[in-house]
Write a protein that binds this DNA or RNA. Structure first.
Lengths: 188, 188
DNA sequence: TCCAAGGTTTACTGATCGGTACATGTTGGA
DNA sequence: TCCAACATGTACCGATCAGTAAACCTTGGA
């Protein structure tokens, strides 16, 4: 029951859930994949739901760490960073094993708005919206909340579209749209 | 085995799948909900997958019929119709039992790009993109495909955000963004 | 009136679901 | 060396999964 063992289980579960989905992934499969016994698994996580929540927490940490860091690497000013976020997205879309946003999928599989998994997925999006709002404010947008929301819409739309449509380069078009929206928000 | 009986089964299955998800809905549940026996169900549909595909076909028909008709009711010119599509979306979001886009959810639960269900979900989005492209072209946009893609991104993003976040009015912000993007596309 | 055809039902299949009781290591302290 | 504490594995639970075999109506035609 050393803590790093638990982390390793969460890491592996995250991979499988991301690849195959939540309902489609049984605990037996995770037991086989991790090599641990079922009893050990249930010593670390009282229920499957608890394991999913742990996996989502790890995913939130991993994704936001990578996304924010990459944006800061790509651009210096808040305005440029808002735009550069779509370059980061584009890089993500090109990765092997890209399967869309785990939190959109979590919200889709657990639709009850009061369900802990749905709530946690929503929290991830809220944190991203907060981040965009901060960038928009520091960029000097006339209505930072509105611009941030619009940027978020483009980001979520780009992810969904990247999953479903091959034509229409979503990251590129989202970036072009963001430029126009940012410019308009700075003028007023 | 009269044809309207089959349609009735598809209609009911569509409701349940939309409400509870695909993997989370068992055939036994559908059998109880529809009142038909399991054998009869499997006389109409050889597999669960076939039933899901039939439900998605009906959903595509219902949604696109409603969406296009509503847009035509709300606006006359192609340019206005591009913008009015977000008013239609907003009405959809306010409906009781709104649970997001069935095709996004289908793509999320069946992630393999070659899976028939994933393919059919993608086809729905492609048809919508085609529709937006037509509107953009008739509106006189300088790059109709690009504008249509951007409108689609806003639409998909608005749906996802409407499901997950309560703050930030997605239909309203998407409409505002679309106005800016349309104006920019008409100027050049 | 009888029969054939086809839709419907009951009852079931093996596999898998999430989860657990209980036996079996394994390890640190005395 | 022995024991207590705890982690692990085996084997299983009832429920549910997608799907099916075979008995049971029901109905139209002769």
């Amino acid at each position: 029951m050393r803590p790093n063992k638990r982390d390793e289980l969460v890491r592996k579960a995250l991979q499988v859930f991301y690849q195959d989905g939540f309902h489609a992934t049984g605990m037996d499969k995770l037991v086989v994949e991790t090599g641990v016994s079922k009893t050990s698994m249930y010593k670390h996580f009282r229920t499957k739901e608890e394991l999913i929540l742990a996996a989502l927490r790890l995913r939130d940490e991993n994704f936001r760490n990578w996304f924010l860091r990459r944006i800061e690497e790509l651009a210096d000013t808040p305005a440029d960073q808002l735009i550069a976020s779509f370059d980061a997205l584009g890089e993500w879309f090109e990765e092997d094993g890209f399967r869309g946003c785990m939190f959109i999928k979590a919200g889709a599989e657990f639709q009850d708005k009061t369900h802990p998994i749905h709530v946690q997925a929503a929290e991830h999006k809220r944190l991203l919206l907060e981040y965009f709002t901060d960038l928009a404010r520091r960029a000097g947008a006339s209505a930072p909340e509105a611009l941030a929301c619009q940027i978020l819409l483009l980001k979520e739309g780009a992810i969904v579209t990247a999953v479903l449509i091959k034509s229409c380069d979503p990251a590129h078009e989202a970036k072009a749209a963001a430029k126009v929206l940012l410019e308009a928000a700075l003028l007023n």
